[in-house]
């Protein structure tokens, strides 16, 4: 096992730790809104569809601009564009045809991901500089995060979080009472677009560190865990963000300590463990407290019925 002082003394380990924690924090906090609006699975579509965008950004940067293909800002821009297109495509299938939203999401996801895999093959067959390890976008590779990447992730993530704070009232109203929100004069389309944009940003800043395939776990798991401990929206967003950040940090630390274990999957397992613990032992809503409550109610009813029969 590696001790924390040695861990944080190492530049690469520091980058792995902070790179994944930022992803976990932003995705966890903003995932709360996707969770409450019951649209968690769209994050799977956006995550998978970020692949062709990230690869197109690489191709354009290398072949047209003659620049560094792994530039974080370009990657984020490309991933946001294709991720958004995929979500809009899924939505428009569900609205315009008789295909249900789950099938529409599956169609959109596979088409964009399939296109991404064709691009990946074109890049790895072609003479592009810096193409080595380009398939890291699939499962992420936190150890190649540079200081500039980290700064970009923090800046873009902060923009998303600030947007959330600025539009807090609108987001809350739209989430819990969409009809009332429209009656009060908030434009549903505008609020939805801003909320959706923050969620897309939260998903795509994780592409480099944890990859496109497992990104859904960062968006779905922390809110589901946090929801068992709190009943207020600020509490949910804060706790979910904290779970995301801490779970990612612990997972990153474990992956370094155990050696040769990929970071992204290990974080996913850590987050899942947090979720299971929350589901089992949280004091107010959990499987164990629910079972205890049921047993107590059953006992009380039994006693009542016995007392009644004794009275007669």
């Amino acid at each position: 096992m590696i001790d924390p002082i040695e861990f944080f003394g190492n530049h690469i380990f520091r980058m792995v730790f902070f790179g994944t924690s930022v992803t976990g924090l932003v995705a966890g906090a903003l995932g709360s809104f996707a969770y409450l609006r019951k649209q968690s699975l769209i994050s799977d579509v956006i995550g998978h569809s970020a692949l062709p965008g990230a690869l197109l950004a690489f191709l354009i940067a290398v072949a047209v601009l003659d620049a560094n293909g792994r530039n974080m800002l370009g990657l984020i821009a490309g991933a946001v564009i294709t991720g958004t297109l995929a979500a809009l495509f899924a939505n428009s299938i569900a609205v315009r045809t008789k295909i249900a939203i789950d099938t529409a999401m599956a169609i959109s996801l596979t088409v964009f991901f399939g296109a991404g895999m064709i691009l990946l093959r074109i890049i790895s067959n072609g003479p592009f500089p810096g193409k080595g390890g380009i398939d890291d976008y699939l499962f992420g590779n936190a150890s190649v995060i540079t200081v500039a990447d980290l700064a970009t992730s923090i800046a873009v993530g902060a923009v998303a979080l600030v947007l959330m704070l600025v539009f807090w009232k609108e987001f809350t109203l739209r989430t819990f009472d969409p009809v009332f929100s429209t009656v009060l004069g908030f434009r549903a389309g505008v609020v939805d677009t801003v909320m959706f944009a923050t969620i897309v940003i939260a998903i795509v800043i994780g592409v480099k560190a944890v990859g496109v395939v497992l990104m859904i776990a960062f968006v779905v798991t922390p809110p589901a865990a946090a929801r068992q401990w709190t009943s207020t929206l600020p509490g949910l967003v804060a706790l979910s963000g904290a779970f995301g950040a801490i779970g990612s940090g612990v997972g990153a630390y474990l992956s370094v300590a155990l050696g040769n274990v990929p970071t992204g999957p290990l974080i996913v397992l850590t987050l899942f463990a947090v979720f299971l613990v929350s589901l089992l032992v949280s004091p107010r809503r959990s499987i164990i407290t629910a079972a205890l409550r049921r047993a107590r109610a059953r006992e009380a009813l039994r006693r009542e019925l016995l007392a009644e029969t004794a009275d007669r």
């Binding site: 969770y35 649209q39 699975l41 859904i216 779905v220 798991t221």
Partner: peptide
Amino acid sequence: TGDAPQGL
């Protein structure tokens, strides 16, 4: 809630 059970 919602479709989250499928994604967990």
